[in-house]
Write a protein that binds this DNA or RNA. Structure first.
Lengths: 218, 218
DNA sequence: TTGCGGACCGAACGTTCGTTCGGCCGAGGG
DNA sequence: CCCTCGGCCGAACGAACGTTCGGTCCGCAA
């Protein structure tokens, strides 16, 4: 008789989660059946149920692991930024570096987990309230870090922006980064690093900004 | 004996399409059943089938009408731009106005057809090849107009950009505009017009650009 | 060697899916 | 007056859905 654990099933191997995410990335959560997942992972239908309790828990696992990883990277970058001595004359460069690093981390994780990210971005909706709340909390904490960086960047360059303006601008940045799932392919559009640089430049300087040989900000 | 028409069923009233789009916007195409649509539109299950031949044709109708409308607006703006006498000293202002108007038209249509737009942006995938090709063609023509505007804007301000850079920058712009579906609500985030202005400014000047009282470009 | 537990499977459960069929009804032209 | 026809419906079809159950296999500790 197990204690009912309404939260995570941490015993599920990462590779199964990743394979299922790859399959769900094509047709979405509702469009991919458990039988599709069984066939795609070379397992039987009932064999899958030894690794997670339900299809919805699988969706939760994909989301939970993805956002936890993104959040850990972002929190590390923010903490490093905060640990710097606050010399005001370097505030512009430091806030620019934080923003640039966050964009690079987001797209970097994305580059190596493209399938999971496709699932993450399209649809927290079909999750139960308990799981949905946990994922929304992770998303919120992640978004707060990006908003902090955007706020710091703007504050170092002009009068600090109101929190709702920072929120909207951060959403625009997320839009640029996440919309990539619809069109990016390595062969056609170059490396993820170059794309991160282009997003950083477009978001901070506008689309007509010249491309520098190295990232330079002043 | 009808001639088999593999394409549109133009006899379906707009309001039914709009109601179905509103329902599909919540849980997506696969997540919304024909019974959900019947209940939601106050009709019977089989009654729906007198307006379209299949669920997939309904998805096609939502996409076809939405993108046709977007495309018509965009083409009108582009033609007006091209009809202007090419006085080079006004090229900067004219290309800025075109870009600003296109963003305004995209978000304006969006503001009055939010539910349809949610369906449009998430998923051309589950469509048959015949329908899918038709929608992809509409999307392509629409994207080409936006790319034209981005190219003109950049060319009027610095050395013309390569076509692949214009393509990427246009995708970033689409990302800012379309990601809105995930978070926008009129009550919290103000009018669509103000948001269009903010996207235009961020895309052209960067996130730290000051907000002018009126749109001014030089 | 025996016993155990986790990984895995085939077969089936009840439900819901998209779609079809035959018939009802009320407005409108002859 | 009747007849037609488009809009609409209840009931049902076979297929596919998520999930469960009993059993098989195999590595490993005792």
């Amino acid at each position: 008789m197990d204690a009912v654990n309404t939260c995570a099933n941490s015993s599920c191997p990462d590779d199964i989660v990743a394979e299922c995410a790859a399959l769900m990335a094509r047709e979405g959560y509702h469009g991919t059946s458990m039988r599709d997942l069984a066939r795609g992972t070379g397992r039987s239908l009932s064999g899958l149920y030894h690794h997670f309790r339900s299809k919805e828990e699988l969706l939760y696992l994909i989301n939970e692991r993805g956002f936890s990883s993104l959040l850990a990277n972002a929190a590390r970058l923010r903490d490093a930024y905060r640990a710097q001595p606050p010399r005001s004359r370097e505030a512009r460069a430091a806030s620019a570096a934080l923003l640039c690093d966050l964009i690079g981390a987001h797209l970097g994780y994305f580059g190596s987990h493209l399938n999971e990210m496709r699932v993450l971005t399209f649809g927290t909706q079909p999750m139960s309230s308990a799981h949905g709340d946990a994922i929304r909390a992770l998303k919120l904490r992640y978004a707060e870090i990006v908003q902090f960086a955007v706020g710091e960047y703007i504050a170092a360059r002009r009068a600090p922006a109101a929190s709702d303006e920072i929120e909207r601008k951060s959403y625009l940045l997320f839009g640029m980064m996440n919309w990539i799932f619809g069109w990016y392919s390595f062969d056609e559009h170059g490396s993820v690093e170059a794309l991160a640089e282009e997003i950083y430049m477009t978001f901070t300087k506008g689309c007509a900004a010249p491309r520098p040989a190295t990232t330079q900000d002043a």
